[in-house]
Design a protein around this nucleic acid. Sequence first.
DNA 1: CTGAAAGCGCTAACAG
DNA 2: CTGTTAGCGCTTTCAG
Lengths: 342, 342
Amino acid sequence: MKSNQITIKDIARELDISPSTVSRALKDHPDISPKTKKQVRELAEKLNYQPNSIALSLRSSKSNTIGVVIPQVVHFFFSTIISGIEDIAYAAGYSVMVAQSNESYDREVMDTKALFNNRVDGILVSMSRETTDYAHLEFLHNRGIPMVFYDRVCDSIDCSKVVVDDFDGGYRATKHLIEQGYKRIAHLAGPHSLHMFRQRLDGYKKALQEHGLPIDESLILPENASDDENVAKELTERLLNLDERPDAIFANNDIAALGAMITIKEHGLKVPSDIGIVGFSNWRFTALTEPTITTVAQPGFEMGQEAARLLIEAIEAKDDEVITSVTKVLKTELVVRGSSVK
Amino acid sequence: MKSNQITIKDIARELDISPSTVSRALKDHPDISPKTKKQVRELAEKLNYQPNSIALSLRSSKSNTIGVVIPQVVHFFFSTIISGIEDIAYAAGYSVMVAQSNESYDREVMDTKALFNNRVDGILVSMSRETTDYAHLEFLHNRGIPMVFYDRVCDSIDCSKVVVDDFDGGYRATKHLIEQGYKRIAHLAGPHSLHMFRQRLDGYKKALQEHGLPIDESLILPENASDDENVAKELTERLLNLDERPDAIFANNDIAALGAMITIKEHGLKVPSDIGIVGFSNWRFTALTEPTITTVAQPGFEMGQEAARLLIEAIEAKDDEVITSVTKVLKTELVVRGSSVK
DNA sequence: CTGAAAGCGCTAACAG
DNA sequence: CTGTTAGCGCTTTCAG
């Protein structure tokens, strides 16, 4: 199907003027006479002329497109981030190209390459879980293409980053439980290799210390409870069978929290009156009407917005401007629904 | 930051041959001598030459990009669709440009226009809830730009479509309840204006009839229970207070199902032993470990894949080929978790 | 005030 | 086998 694009030439021919005049008239260049401008604009309107953005991109070597590399689209947190990115990008006149790594390193390498080849003006990236080699990202960075990391950042590359304050989140979640009267708060860990989980654990410990509660290592289960519900259940089972069982559980995500909740109920105990739960919400709970679990909501939308803002700023900076890399740390929000009080 | 793109010219200059020779060598044109090819390829490799896809697009008037207009990104069903689209597009060498209408008609108009101006090769669209005027879509269609609708389709435009078989879903969900022994199945409706909800209701009725059960209008609540949990609760309340209360509930989405479940429990009744629930899962339940509720899962990933496949097929069809519009109807999947038997 | 020409990076006739 | 030329649609000097 041949698309009969109206071009600047068509208008020129019709009006018997030169293409350059049309171009100028269209962008309201002061040199052009009001009369010509009017004619051109009217004809353009009539023919429904739309500038060919590809030609523009080629000429200006600017595509007005930003690339987003994302580990998974089907994920509450990440989809929220996309939404935030889209929000800002759209308002600033940029299109958003999304490439999903599916948590695969190889795919991430291909994706960054593809986006680069598509000449995006800048790129937002959150690394896959597998990624430990940063050559593909360093390549882009060295190429001078503006880049901003969000959530899963790469420390060794000097560019702006947006992250969540997980320490603070872990701290506040725990503090909340303490203030509700819980005293023996267990901690279901996430994968220890990831920075954010260690941060949350540290926040948890700080809150305990601050309130004069002991850090009981038997309540801190190091196994990763946040990927498999059954693991979470097993670990909770173990906690409940302790001589001195916990009266609250800190879960690193929804899978862990849900597994814990189910097991607790199976034991005939009640949430939150017998055992309180606070869960980080990276997926389910934000959507879930579960008033018994206090959730730590991740600021996905804000993260997307902030990352897009920083990227666009970097893209639009004049060549001689010095862009200083900043790292934005966003706070989580503690969502207490209904009566989650002990 | 000036990006020093390596171009075909650079290679030509270095090797003291013409750009066209380089171009040909790079695409393994038979005319070029093996020696030249080798030289060119090696230098290209060494300089890390990457063809400028914008120049290619301009020349071929093909961008290898497909546009996706989506009502909401942060939605389990829709994000799954994006994932399916991305999957197919990536494999076929296309990039995906995502534009979110946020269920706004105006925004949808802007989005389609923006994608069009970005010269996407084709467009996948699911209409916003507000959309009742199709001029913007007809415009694209008349322009000859390949277009495929998914989920929220526009009947008046002749192009391929991918939809869910809601009648079948409603039918099977109801049938399942009946086979579990439930006899008085209530129906919490969705917004009556939307086709899919009427379809499900029809499926529900057919299942009842087929099994010789009466269609009791007092059990079919016409109010839209699927947007507001409180409405769902109220309606369930009303159902439970009937002289002959239902022994099962058909909910049109997770909000309705969840509201129903909570209310049922508040009445001291048990799900599913006292009252069974089947819920369409457009958001929460797919993610929710709720073994007491049977869910009708929407085939989002397949829908995205199928839509992308149809679109790419249309894009890549030769000009003289006749593309016949097809409408793919995808089946839902009934997910029975744990013991949802009465 | 307007036009001619060059060029963004690439490819494809058309000529050797 | 390889080079020259023209052109995709647009902007922007440079000349009038």
